[in-house]
Amino acid sequence: MRNNLLLILGLLLISSCSENTPTIVYDEDDKVNTSETVKDTLKYQIGDLPIKIDSLDYLIHPIGEIADSENNKKNTYSYGADNYTTFQLATERGDEIFGQMKNLLFENIKNGETTLLTDENIEIQKVNYLRDVAELSGKNHITYEVIDSDTNNDHTLDNNDILSLYLSNGDGVGFRKLTKKNSNLIDYKTIPELNRLYFKSVSDSNKNSVFDREDEVIYQFIILGINKIIDYNPSN
């Protein structure tokens, strides 16, 4: 019973990380005033157990950071009189992986070769294998919901920064950003019959540092395989 409760609490902690309340800080020239992130000395890097998505010849190893202090509430939860550090970085749900991941290691199960997804300082909150596209086209693609810029200028990457959409091949190669710079991801979906990935984001066009109804909504899609991003506007 106790172990089940701890597992539930851990999953709730991870799922809560997906809530995104971004803000943007501007400098005197109305440019986004991002800052260099500062390494948290109370955290250290670990890996998680590998995840195998069928149809892919790769194991996906999540890599992230956990607190080296029981006082860091972001990475600990209480049960009774004790504090427990959760060492779980990610959880799998079908073709999706949720969590707080700094990187992914792709391991080829046929030859054992490994490849890191990126060398950039980012936070990956969600990974999604596009199975419906693969079933029709035979091509494997993965999308990522990523925080890649400290837009609120607090020297950390977290849910107060904008969320971006990234894409790669099924082996992690070709990792690239899809959403426009300084636009916050709203939603995305695939149209597998057309081999397209549609996505929309919002830009802080009135520059009031938050995203609201007065801002511009950006509509785009990418033709998978060709990797051409096209802007469109369904309201015109």
Score class of each variant (00 low, 15 high):
T179K: 07
S16I: 10
I142Q: 07
S137L: 08
S205A: 01
K110H: 07
I191S: 15
N121W: 01
S69W: 00
F87W: 07
Y144S: 12
Y79F: 08
T23W: 03
S15W: 12
I218P: 08
I218W: 14
T37V: 13
D187F: 08
T23R: 06
A90Q: 14
I109H: 00
V127G: 11
T86M: 02
V38I: 13
N159G: 12
I223S: 11
A134Y: 11
D29V: 14
D68F: 08
G80M: 13
D30N: 10
D132H: 07
G10P: 01
L6I: 07
V217E: 02
T156M: 14
T76Q: 06
L197Y: 00
S137G: 15
N140E: 03
G112F: 15
N72C: 11
L7Y: 06
K74T: 12
S168R: 10
N140A: 05
S35R: 10
I230P: 01
K52V: 09
I63T: 06
L178M: 05
F106C: 01
T190F: 04
L163V: 00
L130E: 07
Y84T: 02
T76I: 11
E92W: 01
K74S: 11
Y232P: 06
D187S: 13
N206G: 10
E120F: 04
I229H: 03
K43C: 11
L11K: 03
V210N: 04
I218N: 11
E96Q: 12
I162D: 14
D154P: 04
Y77A: 01
S201K: 12
D187Q: 15
A90R: 13
S235I: 05
S16D: 05
E120I: 03
L104T: 02
E65A: 13
D95H: 10
Q100K: 14
Y219A: 05
K207A: 04
D30H: 15
S235L: 09
L89V: 09
L163C: 00
T118R: 08
Y84P: 00
D132L: 13
L224W: 04
D29H: 10
E216S: 13
E216H: 05
N140M: 01
S16A: 11
L136G: 14
V217P: 05
I63K: 04
V32E: 02
E19A: 07
S16C: 06
L167I: 02
G47D: 07
L130D: 09
S164A: 13
T114V: 08
N153I: 03
D29K: 13
T23H: 04
Y188W: 12
K73W: 14
K73V: 14
T115P: 01
F87S: 15
N20Q: 05
Y129I: 12
A67L: 05
T114W: 14
I51N: 09
N169S: 06
I223L: 10
K126M: 09
N152V: 06
D29F: 08
D158N: 10
I97W: 14
Q220P: 08
D158V: 08
N71V: 11
N182I: 03
N169L: 04
S168T: 15
N153A: 06
D132S: 13
D215F: 06
S69P: 01
R176H: 05
V32G: 11
I162W: 15
G47C: 13
F106S: 01
E120H: 04
Y144G: 10
L104A: 04
